[in-house]
Write a protein that binds this DNA or RNA. Structure first.
Lengths: 118, 118
DNA sequence: CCCTCCTGCTTCGATTTTCGAATCACTATG
DNA sequence: CATAGTGATTCGAAAATCGAAGCAGGAGGG
């Protein structure tokens, strides 16, 4: 197949430099990528279960993302389904402050927009 | 305009819950968004300079992203051009560990991607 | 063996997003 | 008036995403 995952050291879309952080921004900037990592950090899941957890995202894109993330060594498949590699877990760790920030964001946006969680 | 920026508390694509982190993942998962924040964290920039810095990204998308990020209160425009709000600076801070992780990623991918360039 | 149900995964036409060059409106300067 | 700068829009084309249907393979039962 032809899907190409961004890799550090290789120029990616949006940056000819191949700087690691740009490759990461390219990879993570594709739809569903961060969500998939987020879900798998909660618990491993098989293909269909992962699809279910991500609001029934399209199987074709899920397949592509799985391939990209596997190429990037962030994901692996075994008997229990897909799970994060240590590298992938490290990425999720690095993304954790984002969760904290988003709550602060909600607080500052919220007073004007708060209507009701579900 | 009709472009809709994700906001915490409002259901977004990929998640009906409106949980802050899902709104953040939606916003950041759009192409160029993180790159724009990254560039503005280095220095404020006007519209065209920002476009130049982002490898000449299309002006139509830049305009859309600016609107989204402004709606989300992460960006503002003044005499010096576009710059991050304190909230936006907080997001970039939250994203900093990603830079560190990406260097580790590069180290682990690099040695083993032997043979590799295409 | 055959049938059913599960799995990961592919195919393909329709929809949405992004692209990018041209262009607009406005301001300032000569 | 002409030129050049700004932020921003338009629109046809290209790329990414969607989503329902289907494929191949394995496990279990009749």
């Amino acid at each position: 197949m032809e899907a190409r995952a961004p890799r550090p050291g290789v120029p990616v879309r949006g940056s000819g430099s191949g700087r690691p952080v740009m490759a990461a921004l390219d990879l993570l900037g594709r739809r569903w990528t961060m969500r998939i990592l987020w879900e798998l950090s909660q618990a491993p899941a098989g293909f269909r279960e992962l699809q279910r957890r991500c609001e029934r995202m399209s199987s074709s894109v899920l397949s592509t993302r799985i391939e990209e993330l596997t190429d990037a060594r962030l994901l692996a498949l075994d008997g229990d389904g897909y799970h994060l590699t240590p590298l992938g877990q490290g990425l999720v760790e690095a993304l954790k402050p984002l969760g904290a920030w988003s709550r602060r964001w909600a607080e500052e946006m919220g007073p004007a927009t708060e209507g009701g969680p579900e």
